[in-house]
Write a protein that binds this DNA or RNA. Structure first.
Lengths: 125, 125
DNA sequence: CAGGATCCCGCCGGATACTG
DNA sequence: CAGTATCCGGCGGGATCCTG
């Protein structure tokens, strides 16, 4: 990504920004994060609701990814101090922005389902 | 995703399509695949060129992901029967379509870099 | 109900060596 | 140069138990 500015004073900053970008990319570009974002959509859901709707996710993976998303400011975590506790998750504005991308990928998947299935059959032969 | 059509004759097909979609999603929604797609862009690159440009990827991960992408019909693999061998990889049309999504995510990352960094600092405190 | 802590198995993925 | 095969350490992630 960085090819120019070799040795220039801006270089250090650019490298930092670049490595941070890569780090964020690694965090977020994972299957579970995407599915969570997609499931949340514009709704507000509780932990257990997410657990039920994101098919196949384990307790642990859900908490881990929610923490990660919260840390990066993509979801807001709201705790209601009741008993039993009630914790709600909502996409923030950056989260919503990313959701547009994830939506795009879902659309892509459905659009090319046929192509892909055919390609697989060809390849596996 | 599937809520309607319970018990209808279409149900089986829908379930298949759905599970296939999830499978594709799991395949493709991973860091290395994204970075490879992004790196390829509109160019045609050799194995070793990819290895150099996709920073930090190992030999093994590169081959694995290229195979996966080829199998799903996202990249075309062209072998030149010369010695030494020359193998070139190019995004197919479905691959290009997905690249649009990945590009979107890259843009997103850079756009919200500041927000995210700030959010992290807050969270880590 | 939300979620930390722990245990532990499986496989992910890096390093290395070998073929065409 | 591109790619397969093998080995193996580390951690990913599931299952389970425990708190507020």
């Amino acid at each position: 990504m960085i090819k120019q500015f070799r040795g220039s004073p801006e270089e250090a900053d650019l490298r930092r920004a670049d490595s941070l970008a890569r780090e964020i990319f690694s965090d977020v570009a994972n299957k579970w994060a995407f599915l969570i974002i997609e499931t949340l959509g514009e709704r507000t859901l509780r932990f257990s609701e997410l657990r039920n709707e994101v098919e196949g996710i384990s307790h642990k993976m859900l908490t881990q990814n929610l923490r990660m998303l919260e840390r990066n400011g993509l979801v807001e975590r709201k705790v209601h101090p009741t008993v039993p506790p009630r914790v709600e998750y909502t996409l923030t504005e950056p989260g919503q922005a990313l959701r547009a991308t994830v939506d795009g990928m879902c659309g892509w998947t459905h659009q090319y389902l046929g192509h892909i299935e055919a390609s697989r059959s060809r390849f596996d032969a």
